[in-house]
Design a protein around this nucleic acid. Structure first.
Lengths: 239, 239
DNA sequence: GAACACTTACTTACTGGTTAGTAAGTGTGT
DNA sequence: ACACACTTACTAACCAGTAAGTAAGTGTTC
């Protein structure tokens, strides 16, 4: 908590901008291939350690050891533990599909299929799932450095889903219902992860998500739920 | 991590059973009313601190201060931080409804209504929700003391829900589907909590849970999966 | 192509701070 | 007088971050 205490009381930010303290990842003009590989090794180690122990309880020394250096070496590259965390989160965002070639995010109904594919894929990578589940929940603790990241991520996903659902619906659906459907979909995927991590045999993540997708979105798309709102002034829906 | 390291390497369990180390909560024959009140104060403080900071990052000293004593006093009552954690979880189970009189868990369809009521109630108690969300996800980390507790809790809830759904269904539904519906319901409730904690205005927990309940369970109860059966405007899951 | 200036990627060693748990004692109510 | 509820004082361990140094480059100039 020394870092947190300092963050609260130390308003002088000058030291952070002084050249000597700036991490190598931002200071260096042209990083060599080997350097980038070492950096990626650190990120992979951090993802594994943060997943296995959480952010607060995950030690830089363990990450460093897994990457084959000392914890001071890790700090040389990333500047601080906090900076390493958000680097890890961004790395996971961009790279998580790396094994199966970088695919672009589809739009429209295809996005829902993409979501299901991701869930299926996650079954293969418990480490990544663990990191996401642990860190996202830990982020709701007071002053957690990943709070803004996860808030933004959830808001973005929700908006994306709302758009996709509206796009896939021929008529203008009740927007509150669409919003709730989007929230529920995200919640199911996230909530299932914890259940699955605690007892992998007890839940079938892909099938369960598929069921919810069919029931919730399928029904919305089919057009009914007691009250069908006809045509409205919304510009979002496909004409 | 000192506790964890010891747990791993120190196989001698004798000290834990030696009389001098046994916590007062198990040693004392007839605890006085005042003692029990102090003990409850510690539990309430622990719930708040573990919720705000997580288990690993929550300090006994802070819990103690909130309960008006020193951290050694807390250890006098509960023996260890780990023991305090599971005492807190059990306390939350038994007491979380304390404000509104101890009500028994209903069976059958009424249980679904009870679930919704709990969600509604949770909106009022962000601290408890935070503690549950943070601790349940933290429990999936390696060797976490609350792992067994949460695994058992989720398994129990799932079984209970499967029973309730089957009870509420006139015919024999596809059991895999029932199982997935139960998992999905739990996942929605848990997943929504993180979204809500990060951005309370962005999600309507009760309404979203209600929507999922109606769509998923309502449909199952109505009997089919291809044919759309409209559900009445009744917002209560109880028939 | 060799000498020189400079950068980068680390390491070792240390600091200041925090933490769970222990031991020994003190006061208080019964 | 005794059990109990604490406190004070301490310990051993851990941890993020800093400082200072070193070895291996890289680029530039002649």
């Amino acid at each position: 908590m020394s870092a947190r205490a300092r963050e609260r009381f130390d308003l002088s930010n000058e030291t952070a901008t002084a050249p000597a303290v700036t991490p190598a990842a931002q200071r260096v003009q042209k990083p060599q291939r080997k350097t980038l590989e070492r950096r990626e090794a650190v990120l992979k180690a951090a993802l594994s350690v943060f997943g296995a122990r959480g952010y607060n309880n995950g030690a830089l020394a363990e990450i460093a050891a897994q990457a084959g250096m000392t914890h001071a070496g890790v700090l040389h590259h990333f500047g601080s533990k906090e900076a390493l965390l958000i680097a890890v989160l961004q790395y996971r965002d961009g790279e998580e599909v790396a094994g199966i070639a970088r695919r672009e995010q589809p739009t429209g109904k295809a996005f829902l299929g993409h979501l299901l594919d991701t869930v299926r894929e996650n079954t293969t990578r418990p480490g990544v799932v663990q990191a996401y589940a642990v860190l996202s929940a830990e982020s709701v603790t007071d002053g957690h450095p990943a709070q803004e990241y996860f808030r933004g991520r959830l808001t973005g996903l929700r908006e994306k889903l709302i758009g996709v659902i509206n796009e896939a619906t021929d008529f203008v659906a009740d927007q509150q219902e669409v919003h709730e459907t989007a929230s529920a979909l995200i919640a199911v995927m996230d909530g299932l992860q914890v259940q699955w991590l605690l007892d992998p045999a007890a839940v079938d993540m892909p099938r369960t998500v598929e069921l919810v997708l069919e029931e919730l979105v399928g029904r919305l798309m089919a057009g009914r739920r007691d009250i069908v709102v006809p045509i409205g002034p919304s510009s979002d829906a496909t004409p």
